[in-house]
């Protein structure tokens, strides 16, 4: 009995000490490990998007994150998508650079791979990675043929699967980025936008109901009485498109609510957008740039928003007359 007691005590003691030692090591190495991750991410981003001064990292899920690459003025100049996908032997982790329209690939960098050395592993060679520069997704892999257009690349001889895997991951990165930006191209995007807006509205004012009428919306209260109108609109300023959804009071006098949407190519951060949205609520229509108080650091987008609001206002008036 005494011996068994000793067994338990000794083991517990050893495990406790070991646990403490490990916890200490873990805590003291975390900073470095985190920094290494940051560094490898930054280096990869710099090599796929030119002229990056700063970036913002948005994790989409465990395997994908979007990095908004910005120049020294804080304007978005492109995106990096860090994404993990399946290869021939195991996972491949890529940094894929996209231009700011998310339409073409700027370049790719292989962060991690366990492909066969000398064969699949050649995905890290420059000539292979260079093929992706300027490529337009979805990218197709050709076997033993020279690419004919900017959506085709040539497979590595003897490593078709690894080559296809990389192209596949790049295509997935593109899809993820488009979903994130909410601009799936053409009609699809409007659909997504609408859904988001509907959801937003349900959450914000559970008692109100949006009913689609052609290009605009009628907003009813819970008794079915129409109380205001809503419309999607776009404005362009300084080459940037700004998408909004706004609701206007029944007498067309003022903005009741406004949402500046995902997919707008805006280069200001979320807080400033929120501030801008708040200020616009209750403003009388039509807007003029001068009667909107300027939010510091958001001048350009403000002009875009103002033009979007006025365009939407005009469209709404035309529809209802």
């Amino acid at each position: 009995m005494k011996n068994e007691f000793r067994m338990v005590i000794v083991l517990t003691l050893i495990i406790t000490i070991a646990g403490c030692l490990l916890a200490y090591t873990y805590v003291s190495t975390q900073d470095d490990i985190q920094r290494n991750l940051e560094n490898s991410m930054r280096t990869a981003l710099l090599s796929v998007v030119e002229g990056v001064e700063s970036y913002e990292n948005i994790a989409l899920d465990e395997k994908t994150s979007v990095l908004k690459a910005k120049d020294s003025n804080g304007n978005v100049i492109g995106y990096g998508v860090m994404i993990t996908g399946g290869g021939f032997q195991g996972d491949i982790k890529l940094m894929v650079g996209f231009d700011k329209d998310a339409s073409a690939v700027l370049g790719i960098e292989v962060l991690e791979n366990v492909e066969t050395p000398g064969l699949g592993n050649r995905i890290i060679e420059d000539w292979f990675k260079k093929q992706f520069e300027g490529a337009i997704p979805p990218i197709e892999v050709l076997k033993g043929q020279k690419p004919q257009n900017r959506s085709q690349i040539e497979a590595i001889t003897g490593a078709t699967i690894s080559s296809k895997s990389v192209a596949n991951i790049v295509n997935n990165a593109h899809k993820a980025l488009e979903t994130y930006l909410g601009s799936g191209g053409g009609g699809e995007s409007a659909g997504r936008g609408e859904e988001e807006i509907l959801e937003y509205f349900e959450k914000r004012w559970p008692e109100k109901r949006l009913i689609k009428k052609g290009t605009y919306y009628v907003i009813n209260d819970k008794s079915g009485q129409s109380i205001s109108y809503g419309i999607f609109s776009e404005g362009v300023e300084g080459g940037d498109t700004v998408k909004i959804f706004m609701t206007v009071s029944k007498n067309f006098s003022k903005i009741e609510d406004i949402v500046i949407m995902n997919g707008s190519e805006v280069s200001v951060d979320k807080e400033k957008l929120d501030e801008l949205q708040k200020r616009l609520i209750g403003e009388s229509l039509p807007l003029s740039s001068s009667n909107v108080e300027v939010v510091t650091g958001a001048t350009i987008i403000e002009d875009g928003v103002v033009s979007a609001v006025n365009k939407g206002f005009e469209a709404l008036k035309k529809e209802l007359k």
């Binding site: 000794v10 083991l11 050893i14 495990i15 070991a18 030692l21 490990l22 090591t25 873990y26 190495t29 470095d32 490990i33 290494n36 490898s40």
Partner: peptide, 23 residues
């Protein structure tokens, strides 16, 4: 078990150290 715990501790230390200093 006691030996393995001791060994595992040092292995984890080595692993974390390499991750931190020689990624």
């Amino acid at each position: 078990p006691a030996y393995i715990v001791v060994i595992a501790t040092f292995v984890t230390v080595a692993d974390l150290f390499l991750k931190a200093k020689f990624p």
